[in-house]
């Protein structure tokens, strides 16, 4: 019994130590990345290239998802609102849900699955095929040249993608609510205009997107940079990116929501 207990304790100790070790590595990597941002910002063409690959190429999935999410919100929202005779508030409910929560959160989750996983795989493969080592041997810092532009691209892309997601969602809700169900067009838009606040709703949503972009971007480049140089290593790193990014987005969303919206009403 005591031997089993000791084995359990030592396994727990190893697990905690390895997690702390990884956290330390991530902190050191983040420090190096921050130092190299100045150099990376001086080469905007590299960042724009990555914005194209990560952001522009995610546009279709984000826009289509936003449209469907908005449509579903409209159907569900109408079912509840009509019971209380306030179906005209559908536009406000959908817009607030999208701008405050679903826009930034679902966009970040989609981005983690579509773009960040690809960034992890790309950097991991560059490491496995010694492309990063070759760059380092040519006196070119791989963190400034490869990692930082991809990280910045995630931060720049996320707010735009979230805005497009929310816009598509509102359009989807309008199609269902106004065109199919028959809610008054003027009431739909005017209530939305009157009740969605730029600072409280839109700006906070923007802040959330930037925080999620930073988190997802950092996780994807970190996992890729330290991926084991094998097929299994890259597959594991890609999976870790999606899982850790998704969980971090949900956790950060909870924290930010409490900070931003607690006691507003």
């Amino acid at each position: 019994m005591s031997a089993y207990f000791i084995r359990l304790i030592s396994a727990l100790g190893r697990l905690v130590t390895s997690r702390l070790d990884r956290l330390g590595l991530a902190a050191r990597f983040a420090g190096l990345l921050m130092v190299s941002l100045r150099i990376a910002l001086g080469r905007l063409s590299l960042i724009f290239r990555e914005v194209y690959f990560s952001g522009v190429r995610s546009l279709s999935i984000v826009a289509v998802s936003g449209l469907f999410v908005g449509m579903v919100l409209a159907v569900q929202g109408y079912e509840v609102l009509q019971r209380y005779g306030s179906a005209e508030s559908l536009g406000v409910i959908v817009a607030l849900s999208l701008v405050r929560e679903l826009g930034p959160v679902v966009t970040a989750l989609l981005f983690a699955g579509r773009a960040s996983s690809a960034v992890t795989a790309e950097i991991g493969l560059m490491r496995a095929t010694e492309q990063l080592a070759a760059m380092d041997m040519m006196a070119v810092d791989p963190i400034s040249r490869v990692v930082a532009p991809r990280f910045l691209a995630a931060i720049f892309s996320m707010p735009f993608l979230a805005a497009i997601f929310s816009t598509a969602g509102v359009i989807g809700a309008w199609i269902i609510g106004v065109k199919l169900i028959g809610i008054d067009d003027g009431a739909f838009w005017s209530q939305m205009q009157a009740n969605v606040d730029v600072r409280i709703d839109v700006l906070n949503g923007l802040v959330k997107s930037i925080v999620f972009g930073t988190s997802v971007g950092l996780i994807s480049v970190f996992e890729g940079y330290f991926a084991a140089p094998t097929a299994e290593g890259i597959a594991t790193a890609t999976t870790r990116t999606v899982v850790i990014s998704s969980l971090s987005v949900l956790l950060l969303d909870l924290l930010l929501t409490v900070m931003m919206f607690r006691g507003l009403s």
């Binding site: 095929t129 010694e130 492309q131 080592a133 760059m135 380092d136 041997m137 810092d141």
Partner: peptide, 23 residues
């Protein structure tokens, strides 16, 4: 230090086992 090392590496070429070309 890294800047000095990079200075030295500008005078060193390396051919990797499988070329390590940027794909």
């Amino acid at each position: 230090r890294q800047t000095e090392l990079y200075g030295l590496r500008r005078k060193i070429g390396m051919l990797f086992q499988f070329g390590a070309l940027f794909t």
